[in-house]
């Protein structure tokens, strides 16, 4: 029932697509064992106003996190990155100006990202925000929002913990902070918060949550 609903919505979206080059977004994934985990760092926390500064996406295939083929992008900014955000992701305004690293326009970067994710399901932690950021960038341009299936690791984690604690009488109090999940699942904390590390850690959380308990 659910899949029929999803297919229908997918069709509606596909009809609105302004650029036929991006039709692949609506195609069935070639390998249903593949997922794409992604994370972005932004100028701030408001998807309506703020922009993506950097974006990393990593394919997960079976038990493998294909970091060697990861997509790591930096995006040119018109405005300035908020000081609060700089403190989190450590990408300063000056880092986007220096010539050593390739910095793309938003359109170019998102284009590459869309080619990378194809129709594969997306995996993330508070994925809604990251997807909203991408949608902000493509809604005017392509007229659609990301149609991909979305897998929220904090939700998977919540479900798993709920099963574990359901036997107890007390009301479950499940901590969904990123660091708490890492700790509980014994995933190495890479220490720094950049798009790549977060995507890698999220991929490992995802893999661990796939294991039957």
């Amino acid at each position: 029932m659910l899949s029929i609903w999803r297919d229908w919505r997918r069709k509606c979206q596909a009809n609105k697509l302004k650029d036929p080059d991006y039709k692949f977004l609506f195609s069935e994934p070639q390998d249903d064992n593949v997922y794409v985990c992604f994370d972005c760092e932004t100028t701030g926390l408001n998807p309506k106003k703020d922009k993506i500064v950097s974006l990393s996406a990593i394919k997960i295939k079976g038990n493998q996190v294909l970091t060697s083929g990861a997509l790591n992008l930096l995006i040119q900014q018109e405005g300035l990155i908020s000081p609060e955000s700089i403190a989190v992701h450590r990408i300063r305004n000056v880092d986007l100006q220096d010539g050593e690293i390739e910095v793309l326009t938003e359109r170019e970067a998102i284009g590459r990202f869309l080619h990378f994710i194809q129709g594969y399901p997306l995996v993330g932690y508070y994925l809604e925000f990251d997807v909203a950021m991408v949608n902000g960038a493509i809604s005017d341009w392509l007229g659609v929002r990301l149609p991909n299936r979305m897998i929220e690791v904090s939700e998977l984690y919540y479900q798993q913990r709920l099963k574990e604690v359901s036997q107890s009488i007390a009301q479950p109090n499940i901590d969904l902070k990123f660091d708490s999940i890492l700790k509980r699942l014994d995933v190495p904390n890479l220490g720094q918060h950049d798009a790549f590390s977060d995507a890698l850690m999220t991929s490992l959380i995802f893999l661990k949550l796939q294991q039957p308990r």
Binding site: Q64, V65, T67, K208
Partner: peptide, 28 residues
Amino acid sequence: HLDVVYFPVGSAIEVNRQENAYLYFIIK
């Protein structure tokens, strides 16, 4: 060229097969 792979406890890692020719490093 490094990829990250995950193995649950009790699983076997096959290294001798042609298509599985890798050098592995333990992160954790």
